[in-house]
Design a protein around this nucleic acid. Structure first.
Length: 580
RNA sequence: GCGCCUGUAGCUCAGUUGGAUAGAGCACGGGAUUUCUAAUCCCGCGGUCAGAGGUUCGAGCCCUCUCAGGCGCGCCA
């Protein structure tokens, strides 16, 4: 079925000597709905026709007669504006949703393609801080977005489970164990050990040396070092997964850095074989001067590999294992140069597939005034300057619970307050990440984190609860979409809601192509605003009325909004409560 | 010094590939509930789109330069 733009372009093509696709590209959306749904600017024609744009618009409009999908075509200033008929809008919105709710917003754009998404990827052995929410939410949003577009998605958590910090932990643990033989190793205890190490190391430089020694032991396979490492990893993962579950986040694969320990030599061999490896200042590097970048360090002076080597190895592994078309790295801005280097080296190695690798970068999270004293601060786990993600979630859940109990309108809400508070509080935390485009830096404040009103997750969830509530009041099953008399809809508020519904699939595909889940969040806020505007106009837009046909059409509209919102919330990982 | 990112209302942000009078939320002031959920909605207030040039019939958007902030630039990851 041709889109409205294509149809408008075809009609224009009949009265202007220009190909329809060229005209379709010129169509724009008028700034206000009263002005029409599509607009054709006449400025460019002005030159060749030697007439004023408004005159051209008049003449064109008079030559066009409004036939479906348009109800009216008229000149407005220098534009020819097209007004869609309500019937046409219903076709691409309410009817489409109700016909197949699960398919609404999905596409087959990515059919047959695989995308690997590397996200969250925290350094373990310490709990997640709020800043981890960025990669975690952007990545999980993208994984659902790509799945909705028909891609096969493989999500990977590239855990930081290797490095000298484990040596530090071992030193700290050994010292603690000497004082207390029953020293625990749960996640909270590990953090204390970490902080303690850095506190102790300030006064005793030998500790750093000792930590490097322990890490060396770990690399050499020393039994005690390996035993401790395994315990640390296991305990960390336990805490981590608990939090992921609450956030509705999951991974297909946990392949941490240690996983590539035995794979890097082969990668270095391939780099060498490609003639890329050269010696520089005692280290082995790949020169990237012709690419305008500093050299990529492959092997340190002491022969050890680097994180670049590890990422090269991981990319090769991922490609051979999953044969991806795209491989996304949801990692902070800071690593931009690193990934540019890695991708370039992969290309130089002859890996054509490296073109499918993409760094999905995002801005930094810092702490606003009042979080750690009166100045802005960047997080430093070493100083104990962390806001734990779990604390943020818990506080948000508490705040939600308080409001739920204050506002509880019926027994069922009160009875389900615990579960609901968890859904709403976490919804607020998740959604706050989607409130701005990923490239923006974020300043964390408790006030923002705990906001449950305005542009927020709870606002969307509240709207969903309202929609559900009206449908309960309507109380009847809706017939098939074709059996509903949609012509009963037609007020400007109703049309606004229908138009908003119709835009959902485009929002999903744009969010995916731009790797920007925030587009969906933004869309949902707009959809809810449209609905709430209509819903609060109780005089003219009552849903349950004595006029059965009208009620049915409006209930159908409500259900279409609800399903769209439901699907959108699911994409972002938010629960869609039916009461609150 | 070089590279990447950001700069839009007091604050936090949108702005759909260059089109019409630049939009939301928060904050502030006013208003809406005898009837489907007020975590909502409506009205008002609020703008030199960082600045200067340029391209264009038309620029928040494209080009150049400047300014401000963030991040990065081999042996931490």
């Amino acid at each position: 079925m041709p889109t409205a733009s294509q149809q408008a372009a075809r009609m224009l093509s009949g009265v202007i000597q220009k190909p329809a696709d060229e005209l379709a590209a010129m169509l724009i959306r008028p700034p206000k709905p009263e002005m029409g749904d599509l607009g054709f600017p006449c400025f460019t024609l002005s030159k060749e026709l030697k007439k004023a744009p408004p005159q051209i618009a008049q003449e064109l409009a008079s030559q066009l007669s409004a036939i479906e999908p348009f109800a009216e075509i008229k000149a407005v200033g220098p534009y020819v504006n097209f007004f869609l008929s309500t019937a046409a809008v219903v076709e691409s919105s309410a009817k489409a949703v109700l016909a197949d709710p699960d398919a609404w917003g999905t596409s087959s754009d990515g059919a047959g393609k695989t995308v690997v998404i590397d996200y969250s990827s925290p350094n373990i052995a310490k709990p997640l801080g709020v800043h981890h929410i960025r990669s975690t939410m952007i990545g999980s949003g993208l994984s659902r977005l790509y799945a909705a577009c028909g891609y096969k998605v493989v999500t990977v958590n590239h855990l930081g489970d290797w490095g000298t910090n484990f040596g530090q932990l071992m030193v700290s643990y050994k010292r603690a164990e000497a004082e207390n033989p029953n020293q625990s190793v749960d996640i909270d205890e590990l953090l204390k050990l970490y902080i303690r190490f850095h506190a102790d190391a300030e006064n005793d430089e030998s500790l750093e040396e000792e930590a490097r020694g322990w890490f060396k032991k770990l690399e050499d396979g020393d039994a005690e070092a390996v035993r401790l490492w395994k315990i640390f990893v296991e305990e960390s993962l336990k805490g981590l997964k608990k939090l992921y579950t609450r956030l509705n986040v999951s991974f297909d694969v946990y392949a941490g850095e240690s996983f590539f320990n035995d794979k890097m030599e082969a990668t270095v061999g391939r780099i060498e074989k490609a003639g890329l490896l050269e010696e520089s200042e005692g280290a082995m590097v790949v020169d990237l001067e012709t690419d305008g970048m500093p050299p990529c360090l492959i092997r340190k002076r002491d022969g050890a590999t680097t994180y670049a080597t590890r990422d090269l190895s991981a990319a090769e592994y991922r490609h051979s294992e999953y044969n991806f078309n795209k491989c996304l790295y949801v990692v902070a801005n800071q690593q931009e140069l690193h990934f540019r280097q890695v991708f370039r080296v992969l290309e130089k190695m002859g890996h054509d597939w490296a073109k499918g690798c993409e760094h999905v970068k995002f801005g930094m999270l810092s702490f606003g005034k009042g979080v750690f004293g009166e100045e802005k601060a960047t997080g430093s786990t070493r100083k104990g300057h962390v806001v734990f993600l779990e604390d943020v979630i818990d506080k948000a859940v508490d705040a939600a619970k308080k409001i739920i109990l204050e506002n509880a309108r019926d027994e069922e809400v009160t009875a389900g307050a615990e579960t609901l508070a968890e859904q709403v509080g976490i919804g607020a935390v998740i959604f706050s990440e989607y409130l701005q485009r990923r490239q923006k830096d974020v300043v964390f404040t408790w006030e923002k984190a705990l906001n449950l009103q305005g542009d927020s997750g709870p606002y969307l969830q509240y709207t969903h609860a309202r929609l559900s509530s009206v449908l309960r009041k309507y109380g009847k099953a809706l017939p098939a979409a074709d059996a509903i008399d949609w012509s009963r809809l037609g007020t400007s508020l109703e049309k606004g809601v229908l138009m908003a519904i119709a835009e959902y699939p485009a929002a999903v595909s744009r969010a995916t192509s731009e790797n920007e889940p925030a587009v969906v969040a933004d869309y949902l806020l707009g959809l809810c605003a449209e609905f709430n505007r209509m819903f609060t106009d109780k005089e003219n837009h009552r849903i349950v009325t004595d006029d059965e046909a009208l009620s049915q059409a409006r209930a159908g509209l409500v259900e279409a909004v609800r399903l769209t919102l439901h699907n959108g919330l699911a994409l972002l990982g938010l629960a869609a409560p039916e009461r609150m």
